[in-house]
Nucleic acid binder design. Structure first.
Length: 421
RNA sequence: GGAGACGUCGCAUAGUCCGGCCUAGUGCACCACCCUGCUAAGGUGGAGUACCCUAACGGGUACCGAGGGUUCAAAUCCCUCCGUCUCCGCCA
C-alpha cells in the first residue's frame, strides 16, 4: 500500500508514476476524495461515540427511579451511533479499496512505458558460438538422462517434468552453491511453507492482477506460493523489527508453483517455463534509506553467481509498465540462451520500498520513537531454469557438457557430464 | 476425524461464573529523575498500537487472539473462525 501522507501531500507524483506504468491516474483523485469522506465520517462517529460513553456512565450511576427514563434516551443515542458507525466503516472500506489499486510509486530513473521499454544497464561475457550444430537444453537433457518431459506430462500434465540422475544432482548443486554464497553474505537460510493463508498472499501484492497465476486450494482456503518471497515477507508480518545494527537477510529455499495461465503456447519445450520448480530466493528487510544500496547489493550477488557459472548475461532496468504493483524498481538479469538466440530471464530482483511492509504491518522504530514501515527487497539466487542456460552454454560437439569450475565441488568434483548409452 | 482445556497492556499473572466504581489491577523487565559514595537496594513519575481533530498545547475514538451478535452499556453473555496444549482414533 502507498503512503497515505504521500497521497495527501504529493498526489501529482503518484499520478506521474501511474502514467509511467500505463495505469490509471484518475484513481489518485478518487482516493483523495475517498480520504476526505473517510475522515469526515470518522470524526462524526467518534464525536457521537464520546457522547454515548459519557451517557453510559450517567445511566450506570443513576438512582433506580431515573434509570428507565435515561435508558430510553440512551436507546435513541445508540441508534444514532450505530448509523454513524456504519457510515464510517463504509467510507473506510471504500478508501482502502481505492487506495490499494494505486501501485508503488516508481523510483527516479525507472524507464516509463511497456515491457519493451527496458534499459540495458550492462552486459557481461561474449555470446557463445559453436563450430557444430548446437543442441537445445532439452535435447541435451535427454542425451544426459537429466530431463524427462514425457513422463512428467504422463504423471502430472503439460509443463511438468522429472529431473533425473545428473539433472537432479545439477539442480541440488546449483541450489547448494547459491545457499553457500548467501550464508557467506550473512543471509539466514530458511526452508519455507509453500502453502499460505489468503491474507499473506494478499499482503505481498500477488492477489491483484496476477491472481490467475496462482494455485488455490479451496478445500483449505490456502494458496500455493510461486516464490518463497511470499512466506518470507509474511514471516515478520505485524512485527516491529530492530534494523538499527543491520538488515534482516533471509535465503529461502522452496519449491515454487505457477499456473502460467496467460502463457499458453509460449516456451512449451523444456524446462524454461514450468508449473513447478525450485528456487533459492534472497529476501531482506532494510531501513527505507538503505533500500537502493541493498538492491545493488542483491544484483551484485546474482552477477557473481552467473559469472562463476560462466554464463553471458545482461542486466536490465525493467520498464515501469512491466513492474508488479509492489515493486518501485526491478532489475532482471537475463542470460544468453544459444539456441533461442536470445537473452532469457534468470533472476529478478525487486525493491518494494515500503509498499509491501505497509500492507503486512512490518515496522521499525524511528529515532523519535515512532513506528514506520520498513523496506523489503527480494531477488533470485538460483532456480531450475538456470540449468537450461548452463547446459546450452557449456555443451560440446559430442553432446557432453563441461561443468563450470565453481560448480564442480557441488557435484563431487565432476568435470564433464556425458551422454548416457 | 472425535473429546476437552486455554488465548488479557514486552514477559508473567488478576479480572470472565454474577455485564456498569476496568479509564484493565499487580509483579518483573524498561525509561527519566530523586536518594544512597559501590556490586540482588529504596523512592517518585513515565511508558502500548492504530486512527481522528488541532498551527501548537492538548483532546477524542478503537483495540483484552480475529470477526460478527445481544445490550443504554461487553475483557465479562451468545455465534463463527484462527491458534496453542492434552487425550483418543487414523495415517505415507
Amino acid at each position: 500500500m502507498i503512503d497515505p501522507v504521500l497521497l495527501r501531500e504529493n498526489p501529482d507524483l503518484l499520478k506521474r508514476s501511474q502514467e509511467a506504468r500505463g495505469a490509471s491516474a484518475e484513481v489518485v483523485d478518487s482516493a483523495l476524495a475517498a480520504d476526505t469522506e473517510r475522515r469526515t465520517t470518522i470524526s462524526a462517529f467518534e464525536a457521537l461515540r464520546a457522547e454515548q460513553n459519557q451517557f453510559s456512565k450517567k445511566v450506570a450511576s443513576a438512582p433506580t427511579e431515573e434509570k428507565k427514563q435515561l435508558v430510553a434516551e440512551a436507546q435513541a443515542l445508540a441508534a444514532r451511533v450505530k448509523a454513524a458507525s456504519a457510515l464510517a466503516t463504509e467510507a473506510e472500506e471504500r478508501f482502502t479499496t481505492v487506495v490499494r489499486t494505486i501501485a508503488n510509486p516508481i523510483l527516479d530513473g525507472v524507464p516509463a512505458g511497456g515491457e519493451d521499454k527496458f534499459v540495458t544497464l550492462r552486459t557481461h561475457g561474449e555470446t557463445p558460438t559453436f563450430d557444430f550444430e548446437a543442441r537445445d537444453h532439452l535435447e541435451l537433457g535427454e542425451l544426459l538422462g537429466a530431463i524427462d518431459m514425457a513422463r512428467g506430462a504422463k504423471v502430472s500434465g503439460t509443463r511438468f517434468y522429472f529431473l533425473k540422475g545428473i539433472g537432479a544432482r545439477l539442480e541440488i548443486a546449483l541450489m547448494n552453491m547459491a545457499l553457500d554464497r548467501a550464508i557467506a553474505a550473512g543471509f539466514t537460510p530458511m526452508i519455507t511453507p509453500t502453502l499460505v493463508r489468503p491474507e499473506i498472499m494478499d499482503g505481498t501484492g500477488f492477489l491483484g492482477e496476477h491472481a490467475d497465476e496462482i494455485y488455490y486450494l479451496p478445500a483449505d482456503d490456502l494458496y500455493l506460493t510461486g516464490t518463497s518471497e511470499v512466506a518470507l515477507a509474511g514471516y515478520h508480518s505485524d512485527e516491529i523489527l530492530d534494523l538499527s545494527a543491520e538488515p534482516l537477510r533471509y535465503a529461502g529455499w522452496s519449491t515454487c508453483y505457477r499456473r502460467e495461465a496467460g502463457s499458453g503456447g509460449k516456451d512449451t519445450r523444456g524446462i524454461i517455463r514450468v508449473h513447478q520448480f525450485n528456487k533459492l530466493e534472497m529476501f531482506t528487510y532494510v531501513l527505507p534509506t538503505d533500500a537502493e544500496a541493498e538492491h545493488d547489493r542483491l544484483v551484485a550477488m546474482q552477477e557473481d553467481m552467473l559469472q562463476s557459472l560462466g554464463l553471458s548475461y545482461r542486466v536490465i532496468d525493467v520498464a515501469a509498465g512491466d513492474l508488479g504493483s509492489s515493486a518501485a524498481r526491478k532489475f532482471d538479469i537475463e542470460a544468453w540462451v544459444p539456441t533461442q538466440d536470445a537473452y532469457r530471464e534468470l533472476t529478478s530482483t525487486s525493491n518494494c520500498t515500503t509498499y509491501q511492509a505497509r500492507r503486512l504491518g512490518i515496522r521499525y522504530r524511528t529515532e523519535s520513537g515512532k513506528t514506520a514501515p520498513v523496506a523489503t527487497l527480494n531477488g533470485t539466487l538460483a532456480t531450475t531454469r538456470w540449468i537450461a542456460a548452463l547446459l546450452e552454454t557449456h555443451q560440446n560437439a559430442d553432446g557432453s557438457v563441461t561443468v563450470p569450475e565453481a560448480l564442480r565441488p557441488y557435484l563431487g568434483g565432476l568435470e564433464l557430464l556425458e551422454p548416457i548409452q
